[in-house]
Every structure is written in structure tokens, then in C-alpha cells.
Design a protein around this nucleic acid. Structure first.
Length: 206
DNA sequence: GGGCCGATCAAG
DNA sequence: TTGATCGGCCCA
């Protein structure tokens, strides 16, 4: 395993998030190079965090040591994956939002049911990324830095710091002032930014 | 025990 | 813009 990665994940989520860009995630016979991630603080003042309301059976892995996978099921049909980071009991994590499929494209494509198979969209979006790699609840709580079914590897080539951009997180109601979404500038696999729109809000009539 | 809504996606 | 579809979590 990479000690460098282990050290990175032991740090604050917003720092770990930057370092995760360019890293490779291998699972289910395919590999993705991460192009977009989001940091979530744990119990301390991040209303968007799944751990914000305290420890529950669902989020318990977030309260453990860094480097483990927090997968969760959402909208009745989608899986998403987080990397737990920060010190134990901190419950911070980084959501893996998108990436470029750099290996096992055929495998990933076969797993996705797309009307138009655009390879750039194979892992664009957190649920798509999981779908492309076959990640689901079975990965919950597994260690990502050592030979498990889901493995995180350092970047094949270093990511230039000036390619990293940041902005508000996607789909998050609270904490809009926190620019904790990070992505690689110009990467076509980065999901489009959509400002969160409350379901029952007066639509901005133009 | 009931109801609401979510770190989403794909198609109309 | 909207339907699909399930489980966590709050409230009664």
C-alpha cells in the first residue's frame, strides 16, 4: 500500500480531497482516474455531512480510521462511495464524484445501461462511477489501500496543482459557502455543476 | 408506525 | 422537467 496515500487520508477532508484527484480507483475489472471529488467534514458543523446528526448504523464506518469505504444507497437505486479520512471519530469523508475510465472500458461500458454509450460519461457522476466499477454495499467498510475488492492507487503521473479548481458542492442544501468540491480543470469527465434547487422554492421566473 | 425526502440518473 | 424506487431518520 502507499504510505503517502495513507498519510494524505489521515489529514483534513478538504486537503485529502485535493490529493485524491488523479488517483486511480480499481474495482470490478475496471479502473477510474478521479477527476472530481467533494469533501465533507464530519460531526463538526457540516450540515451536509451524513455524519452531521451523529453516529448511526448506516454511517458508523465514517467514525472509524481513515482509508475505508463508506458506500451508501440513495434515491432507491443508486450507490455512491466515500473515502473516510481524518482522525478517528472525526467522521470526515470525501465523496468520489467522477473520473475517467482508463482501464477496462469494455467492462465498465457493459455494466452501464446507456442509450448512447459516450465513454466520457461512463463514470461522470457519483452513481455512474460506482455503476461503472460495480461498487455497491458489498464494499461498505472495506479498506481501500490494501488488496481489497476496491483499491485506491496514487496518481500514475503527478497532478499539477494549478489544474485543480474548487467550488460549491453539488446537490447540497446547507453549507453553500464552502467551496469543497474539487475537480481537474478542463477534464471532460467532470460532471456539470448544477446549483442546488430546493424542491419547493419559488422558481426564479425570468 | 407513518411519512417525507435524499450527496441521483436517464428519458420525455 | 419529471418519474423511478428504496431506506434512513425524524416525528407522532
Amino acid at each position: 500500500m502507499s504510505q503517502e496515500l495513507a498519510d494524505l487520508l489521515a489529514g483534513p477532508a478538504e486537503v485529502a480531497a485535493r490529493g485524491l484527484l488523479g488517483c486511480r480507483l480499481t474495482a470490478g475489472g475496471a479502473t477510474v482516474r478521479l477527476s472530481e471529488v467533494e469533501a465533507y467534514a464530519g460531526t463538526s458543523g457540516d450540515p451536509a455531512s451524513h455524519a452531521h446528526r451523529g453516529r448511526t448504523p448506516r454511517n458508523s464506518v465514517m467514525f472509524g480510521p481513515p482509508g475505508y469505504a463508506y458506500t451508501y444507497f440513495t434515491y432507491g437505486m443508486h450507490w455512491c462511495i466515500n473515502v473516510v479520512c481524518g482522525p478517528e471519530d472525526d467522521a470526515a469523508a470525501v465523496l468520489l464524484r467522477a473520473g475517467e475510465v482508463v482501464d477496462g472500458v469494455e467492462t465498465a461500458r457493459a455494466r452501464r445501461r446507456l442509450r448512447v454509450p459516450d465513454d466520457r460519461q461512463l463514470a461522470r457522476g457519483p452513481a455512474r462511477l460506482c455503476s461503472a466499477l460495480g461498487i455497491d454495499g458489498a464494499a461498505y467498510g472495506t479498506y481501500l489501500l490494501g488488496g481489497g475488492p476496491v483499491t485506491l492507487l496514487p496518481p500514475a503521473t503527478p497532478v499539477p496543482e494549478d489544474l485543480i479548481r474548487s467550488g460549491p458542492r453539488v446537490g447540497v442544501t446547507g453549507g453553500h459557502d464552502t467551496p469543497w468540491r474539487f475537480w481537474l480543470k478542463g477534464d471532460p469527465t467532470v460532471s456539470e455543476y448544477r446549483r442546488h434547487v430546493p424542491k419547493r422554492s419559488s422558481r426564479t421566473r425570468t
